[in-house]
Design a protein around this nucleic acid. Structure first.
Lengths: 225, 225, 225, 225
DNA sequence: GGCTAAACGAGACGGTACGTCGCGTCTTCCA
DNA sequence: TGGAAGACGCGACGTACCGTCTCGTTTAGCC
């Protein structure tokens, strides 16, 4: 998605030419600003991040920055969001492997200083500002959730999971798994402050996997009956 | 725990006499400040909370405030920490019931606007300030973790869980369960922004319970079927 | 005089053909800009006048504005100068009547909000910017001074004043009279903030033409000759 | 008069102790600010004068500056006003000598770069801001006017001028003389940009005290009596 | 009647100063 | 000597204009 573009330009149609009549916004500035934001975030943390500082580091006037993003929050969302684009679901042939891979990916992402500095702060700010909350969800949370959905679909194709009974139930199951994976990984890394090792991933995956309702393999059956 | 009291005065035991020669510190001021902090937090959120505002609302000079707490962060920790004191582990006779009860309690706590405003913000600030991090863990995170430990012990007494093999493993198991419960609940409420209903609690507990390694009984089956 | 026309084009004579090959400058824009300037000046005063505002009000791009006038100062000089073109010396048959008439005219001119807002401000800016100073003198001060010269010549023709002894003395006398008339009227209106009534004009003219009212000795006569 | 003191403190009673409960305002800061303002004014002129610059040069925070003066205008009034306190009426034994002395004093004052930079600008701003206008009059214009009043009284004592007939007429006469002296001197120095020499002073004083040089008829006498 | 070149509207751009806000420290007086 | 009151230095904020620039679009004169 393009930078915020407060004017209702290039919003939905990514292809639509700038159309505006005046001088077009500099794409280089966008890049420089986002890069500067990520760097500053990594170096100084959320609290040390200053609009003036970002502008200076990007070689851009503060006004240019405000013309594109209304506040530090929105800027950081966009700056950090791109990092989350690199998350992708592998298809490793088994549900367990897929989960472990995605958790590992997520852990690597959260180990970056810029995402650490930004993530909790954005969530915190978002708890008061619904606008921001929406944005954070769109740009950061959804991409993660997508992976869960995708992994689930793959597992269903493979026959590891039974197909969806109905839309609503499926959605609820995705939600709960998603909150569990994302929440737990974030809590361990950012709150408990302990590292995420392959061993931990394995244990956690076991915790998740064993009882998944609708699991067709016989592991659960044994546990359960 | 009493307020920070940078001077080595009255620490834990309220019994210690005022000691100093001059005028003793006003206990009423402490209470007023913490109350004001919680109220302001609920009304204005973390970002809207200012030391000046708190002081004014508490009818207290800023000086008084800084004499007791070195910064906004520490103040909020103390103000919010007391809320977490009310968490307690029930003993309802089964692990499942105990878990559901504690999750429900936690959910209720996180529904309060003051804890919502404070929690993520404190975690975020803590990720840069080790001092604060320590403090947050002592006052907020540990009490929660304690419950997990306690619930586990109860279950072991009841025979639902096998006794600890060794210290290290036990600690790891507690950690993973704790991060999962706390992280998931927080993520659902504060990030996904969806309510925690009895139904959700039941599903989540099932997810946790079913395969727990070391689970000796098949209670879970009964609960589920 | 045509607008600044930084390119060495049409300067005094409007007859000079546009010469250039491209699209000629819009005369309508010039008019619109100057009108907008005068209006904005009257409404918002000097301080409230911005180039952007003038451009918007004139329905013109800022570029167009800067193409013609290098700065706010120059623009305002041109916008206000035309007002001073309407000053003219009457020949009413006596020096006193002529002076009173010209003072009255000047007072009327200075009562306009746009000239009030502009005049002192231009003088003030001019005290640092010799370029502007020159321009202000050419367009605003000289026309006034001309009247003094003209009035003096008329009075000499009538025999009310003795003819010039020499060039230098004449110039000095004109200067002193001019500074006195212009300075006094401006000071009364713009600094003291009191109105200029026919009665005041009469008193002032008397002061110029006569000795101090109430002067008891004839010292002055002795001093003079 | 003390600095603006926006709080209704020490306004009328110059003797009243600061009275306020908190930390009193630093008198040193006041002095430093006013000095810095005068210096900056002399060096950079009105346009180059910046609140931030003044604060920095005075070794003071911008906030401190704004706590005392609401804007650049008010600050400059106070900074420049003190210069005008040094104006005083000599008693040299004759009206002519007194006038020449006071005009000379005024000319010297207006030759200072700080007053040149400030005076017209203040007058200009004042033409839009009645608050400022009042202030300028109180602190700058009145002191000058006082001298006229005083000189007139001296001349009356000496018998050079006939005593006041009535209050109103006296006031009007003072006004007209005052506007003439102040306006003319300012116009010559600041608008015409020519120096004020002893010779010019003599000519101007003659103009004030006598009829127009070279006036051939005795019209004035007829008009007057 | 197409070509060329300037003027035009729109508006983004790098700057500078603005006036405000909150911080955490300090100084003063009062109880 | 603790506490209220509030001034202080600091530094970031977000805004307003500045004067320049880069676009795409007229609008003329000239070949």
């Amino acid at each position: 998605m393009a930078p915020t573009t407060q004017q209702p330009a290039a919003h939905d149609q990514a292809v639509s030419p700038p159309r505006g009549k005046g001088r077009p916004r500099s794409a280089a500035a966008d890049r420089a600003i986002l890069d500067a934001t990520r760097e500053a975030l990594a170096e100084l943390g959320w609290g040390g991040l200053t609009m003036g500082h970002v502008a200076a580091r990007a070689g851009v006037a503060k006004t240019t920055l405000y013309r594109r993003w209304p506040s530090k929050n929105e800027l950081v969302v966009d700056a950090v969001a791109s990092l989350f684009d690199e998350l992708e679901m592998a298809d490793l042939g088994s549900l367990r492997a897929d989960i472990e891979a995605v958790v590992a990916q997520f852990a690597v992402l959260l180990a970056r200083p810029e995402s650490q500095a930004a993530l909790l702060a954005l969530f915190a700010e978002g708890s008061r500002d619904p606008q921001l909350r929406r944005r954070v969800r769109e740009r950061i949370v959804e991409p993660q959730k997508c992976l869960v959905q995708q992994g689930r679909a793959q597992a269903q194709l493979r026959g590891e999971l039974s197909p969806d009974r109905d839309e609503a139930t499926a959605s609820e199951e995705i939600d709960i798994i998603f909150d569990t994976i994302a929440g737990t990984v974030e809590h361990r890394l950012l709150v408990s402050g302990r590292p995420i090792t392959p061993d931990w991933i394995s244990r956690f995956t076991t915790l998740l996997l064993n009882p998944l309702p609708g699991l067709t393999s016989t592991r659960a059956d044994q546990d359960q009956g």
